[in-house]
Design a protein around this nucleic acid. Structure first.
Lengths: 157, 157
DNA sequence: TGACAAAGTTAGGCGTAACTAACTATATTA
DNA sequence: TAATATAGTTAGTTACGCCTAACTTTGTCA
């Protein structure tokens, strides 16, 4: 087939890949420093991740050079980023979560939940959105539903 | 306050704690071997986990003895198991996932998603369930919604 | 009661993923 | 162009979570 075997990425490598994808934008180049900043890790950690991603043919990487995604890297990253965005907007728009928390949860969700659940969850989100446009506004109703419960119980931390 | 500072547990330690909780049942005792079996890890790994849990005062553990949960261990485990069950039934009853997959996803979900999202998600599940009993059967509708989309796209792996 | 099996632990190793500190390469600019 | 600042790498450490192999403890039963 067209694509070669997708070597499964660890949670952390997916994060790196997505960060590169977001940082690189149209130019498709970015730098180690920026990746480190984006992910809040040390520059040394980025170097390590870049080596791993290069091994998997996902990035073009030469020490001291700009970093860019390979074709398969871009495809993989786009897929990750897409699911990520859907989850994030579910967390924000439906569940009403704050952006920053939604962001980091979306990052981790996929690895944790696995492809089957994610696929189903994405469908479900689509369903909720679809309903909220064409039928009953579930999001609105959920908000009200939450309102009626507030103060009835303590949210413990 | 009543409880001492909850030292945050790693994903894996929570899994051990929950396994002990489930295995111990009313008797509140279990054995290393059974924990290993339940989680599919080696006996040696269980020993390591038990030491960590004992350090955090969550289990009574003495080498070569039966294992039981402390009071705070039981409280922590019950909380984990409860959220776990809610998530699992959402995955199964709403999303339509298979039991085994739902099980493992529920295990990991909490660590990954974090307490805020989980709390909101639990509310949302409650909302969906509430609706499916008292109002429109959202679960049914979601199933249909999925049906209309099947065959329109490829689910890639 | 002593041999054996089962249960449990210890020791040592592996992979991942992060860190700091120190080094090297590159870029800027006086 | 030489000094310096910035970027990037290397080496070494730590922590976690798992493994296997070998050892110890405990319980059973002939």
């Amino acid at each position: 087939m067209a694509g070669m075997k997708k070597t499964k990425l660890s949670a952390s490598l997916e994060d790196y890949l997505e960060a590169i994808y977001n940082l690189a934008g149209d130019s498709n180049i970015t730098r180690s420093r920026d990746i480190a900043g984006q992910l809040g890790v040390s520059r040394a950690s980025v170097t390590g991740a870049l080596r791993a991603l290069k091994d998997k043919n996902l990035v073009h990487y030469k020490p001291y050079n700009y970093i860019s995604l390979t074709e398969s890297g871009r495809i993989a990253a786009a897929e990750i980023a897409n699911k990520h965005d859907i989850l994030k907007s579910f967390f924000i728009d439906v569940l009403g979560e704050k952006s920053a928390i939604a962001q980091s949860a979306a990052c981790k969700a996929e690895h944790a939940l696995g492809p089957e659940i994610i696929a189903r969850l994405l469908s479900f989100i689509e369903f909720v959105n679809h309903n909220s446009e064409n039928g009953r506004n579930l999001v609105e109703e959920f908000r009200k539903f939450c309102g009626t419960k507030r103060n009835k119980r303590k949210v413990e931390k």
